[in-house]
Structures are given as C-alpha cells and as structure tokens.
Write a protein that binds this DNA or RNA. Structure first.
Lengths: 252, 252
DNA sequence: CCATTGTGTGCGATATATGAACAAATGTCA
DNA sequence: TGACATTTGTTCATATATCGCACACAATGG
C-alpha cells in the first residue's frame, strides 16, 4: 500500500471514537486530545464532525456519543452471519444450563464477545457484544489460542500483558502453551477464577465444516455454586451438543 | 460551525463502514462506491485505511469487517451507563416472563436496541445491540414517540416511511398521534403483529428521577402463544416492576 | 472479440493538519 | 479577595495531504 492510500483524517477520527470507551461518557476536547495524543485542533475537528453527522452530541463543553454510533458495530454484526447463527443456540444452551452462555472470536491478544445469552450476572463487569477480555486468562481465549499454530499462540502471548488478575491466574507462557496442548487434546478449557475471583467458566471451540475453529462458546458460573471441578461434568456435554449442532451450519 | 471544522475524509469513512451493514459481509471497491455514492478512488483509500488499522481484512478483491470494528460501538456501550444499568434488570425480567426482553432508545425515526435478554427467538430477524427498527410500528417506538412533544412526534412521523408491514400495521399519522395520547395516559403500548406477523409486544417507558423518558423496555412474545389481548394482563405488572426498580438508579 | 465492469495511478485543485498565538475560563495561593 | 499561573477552546497561516477526475490496464462475460 502506498503512503497516499491512507486517509489519516479517518484513522484519527476512529481513534477519537475509541477514546470514549476508555473513560467516561463525556469528553472535552482537551481530554480527548490527551487520550488520543492528537493535537487539540485536530481532535476538535473530528469531534465536531461526529456531532455534525449525529454520532455525537455537543453541549458546548462536552461531547457524548449517541446511539447512532452503534450502527458502526452493527454493520459487522449484521454483515457477518456468525453472530446471528450462534445467538439462538446460545439462548437454548443458556436455558438448558441455567447459566450465562457466550460466544467470542479472537482479535489480537483479546477475545471479542460477538453474542451472549445471560441468565444471571456472574461477573462484576457487563459483557455485551464488542466487550473484550484478555485471551490468555479466559476460557474462550484458551480455546481460541489452542486452535492456532503453537508458534502463533506463543507470539500472541509474547504480545500480551500477562497480568496476575487473581492469585489463581496463570501467567507463565510455557505453562499456558502446555495447557493449550491439553485443550487441543481434550477439546475444552476450564478457567477457575483466573480472571475474577468467584467466576468459573468452561469453553469449547466452534468449528466449521472444514474443521477450522471460527469461534468459541462458553458457559460461566459462580464458583460458589459450581466448583471448577464440577464444570466439566455439568456443562461439557451441553457445550458439545451445541458445538455439534453448529458445525453443519458453518459452511465456508 | 465553520466549513473547515468538518473532516470530510472522516465522514466519508464512516459512511463506508455503514455500507457493510446494508448488504453482505464482503464488499468490493466498486460495490462500496455504489452504496456510498463516493468516488471509487476515495472509497478505496478509506477501505485500505480500515484494513491498515485492522478494522477490515482485504484479500486483494473483497473487504470484510473484522471484530475490531465492534470497538467503536462498544465505546458507546461501555461509556454510557444506561445499557450496563439496564442489562441485569432485563435478564431478571426476561426470566420472570419467560420471554425476550429488550431496551431501546430513539434515534431519529428509528429505535436502537441498547440491551437485550432473549429467552427464545420470536422474530425472524436477529436483534442485537445496535439493531434498528422503525419507531412508528414497534412497541418501544410508540412509547418513546409518546414521550415527545406532540409536534415533535408528528415531525418524526412525517420523516418516517410509514410502511404497511403487515395487514395490521397502522400507518395513518393522525391515528398514530391518537395512539400516542393513549400511551401517555395509560403508560404502556401494545403492538399486535404490526411489524411482523406472529409477533406481539408490550412496552413501557424508563424514566429517570426527573421524570424524563430516557429509554423504553419491552417484552415480546409469539402471537400464537400469547394473544395481544393478554399481553397487558400477563406482562404489564412485570414491566412496571422493572420500571420502578430502575427509576431511582437513573440520576441525571 | 468487443463490451462491460472493475482496479490502480498521476495530477491539479482543494481540503486538512500542524503548531503557534490569543482570549477566555479556571485554578491556585497569599 | 486579587494577582498570577494554567488550562482550554478557538483562530490563523501555510505546508502538506487528500479528492475527484481522467486515463490505462486487467478481468469478465456474452
């Protein structure tokens, strides 16, 4: 790609939108400038553009995003068959298990939720399509990383900030790679409070009819109700059932 | 705002992203150019910019959005307290009712889903945060339009394409305005298969502590299981319960 | 084989980014 | 409170980047 094939004004604008996610609802020009490391004058033009197009409101001091901004993410959710295909199966899975069920794909070092059916809140944070979690310490992340070539998985771990979220979080790359091997061999991953104290989850890959892993699905449960040791016997067969139902639907 | 305070390259890029929602997953440069009515060279630069930043993939012929694009919508969902606040209440509502529950806000002539808890699929289309429906023929839309000044509601109807989706769809502006009055007086709206045959729904407004309507919540059910006439007696009290639980949480 | 449709590139006209300058608002401290 | 220092939003001049057009070429299909 040539230098001139890049619209820097567009790139800067996208950066400005993302700045809203990192902090609060409202951003002043100066705040947005700091978050994006762009010149105040430049950010101002981007924000005024967003306001002009109805993607943001401006009260003369603060800018806030409007729901119109959801059109952008929706362009992906509507255009990609995967989320729409998964949703009813997640609903059913969630109902049968009596717990939250989610689906995600890998994006860099993070997993991105693309669909979710929640029975109960088990996590302190609110997960919606578009929510992101570090892959190395999430059950779906383990499954998705295990599906990659080992060198690739290792490269992603190297780029990840391997943070000790809880005393139980595994952060040693070699240990994680070994776990990926087990996940590949046994077909599922269980997380026991590695992301957040009190939360266990179990995930399996979703493969298409060519055997390529295109997503992961999981069930999350409060550790107080379902000990990690019981996750497998309670939910693995339900997950496998859903996995099997999805495979023929995923043509590439 | 001065003419030079608008970054047209940014605006054009956003238009390109939205073009993906309207059709398929994959867009060629020429297709995107037609959809956006922008010059091919311009669209090409925007698409290459998206690809360069990881928001799109490019195989040399077609562009597809990547899950990274969800960050943009997520910036809104994460930054705005409303969706996160509503979600657990919707989950509970959905569980109690045994039907899908959703929340939405008004954006122009359409309602935008900002949260959803689905028990079962009742609609032919898949609704996710960011999904849009015409306001005039959706239960939440009726509630949100009823909350506006009548002149404003009428202006929105004038801008709406009042389409006869089913034989039951009401499309007469005066009739709709009269219905808004009833909704205002009685505090709820019921839709009987006006959007899609086989689908009934009932909605109530969500007000903040100053009495301003900030969103609407609804329950949808298959007409075959729950006749429209029964929607009120079955679900209104549950909705009112949720409405009451939310009000004190919504400070402005 | 020609007509059609799609993609890549060079160029002049036009739009935008940048950093500095300035005024207004805000914060700080005696 | 008043004087002073910071921070913020806005404007400006100008160097730089981008747009849309025209054209060349490639791929497709009848």
């Amino acid at each position: 790609m040539r230098e001139t094939d890049f619209v820097s004004g567009f790139g800067r604008g996208l950066k400005v939108i993302e700045a809203f996610g990192e902090t609060r609802q409202r951003l002043s020009i100066a705040e947005a400038s700091k978050l994006t490391e762009l010149d105040r004058a430049t950010v101002r033009r981007s924000l005024l553009t967003l306001a002009e197009l109805g993607y943001a409101d401006y009260d003369g001091k603060f800018f806030t995003l409007t729901p119109k901004i959801l059109r952008l993410g929706h362009a992906y959710l509507a255009a990609t068959p995967l989320p729409a295909l998964l949703q009813p199966h997640l609903d059913l899975l969630s109902e049968k298990a009596g717990q939250s069920a989610s689906a995600s794909v890998l994006d860099g070092t993070e997993i991105v939720y693309i669909a979710r059916a929640s029975q109960r809140r088990v996590m302190s944070i609110n997960l919606t399509p578009g929510s992101r979690l570090p892959a190395y310490c999430a059950s779906m992340g383990r499954v998705l990383l295990a599906a990659l070539a080992e060198s690739e998985a290792r490269a992603i771990l190297a780029r990840s900030e391997l943070k000790q979220n809880t005393p139980k979080t595994r952060t040693d790359p070699d240990e994680l790679i070994a776990e990926f091997r087990r996940v590949r061999a046994e077909g599922y991953a269980v997380i026991d409070q590695e992301l957040e104290i009190g939360l266990c989850s179990i995930a399996v890959p979703v493969d298409n009819d060519r055997g390529e892993t295109v997503a992961a699905i999981n069930i999350g449960a409060p550790a107080a109700l379902v000990p990690a040791a019981e996750m497998k016997e309670r939910y693995l067969s339900l997950l496998k059932e859903t996995q099997a139902a999805l495979r023929p639907l995923l043509r590439r």
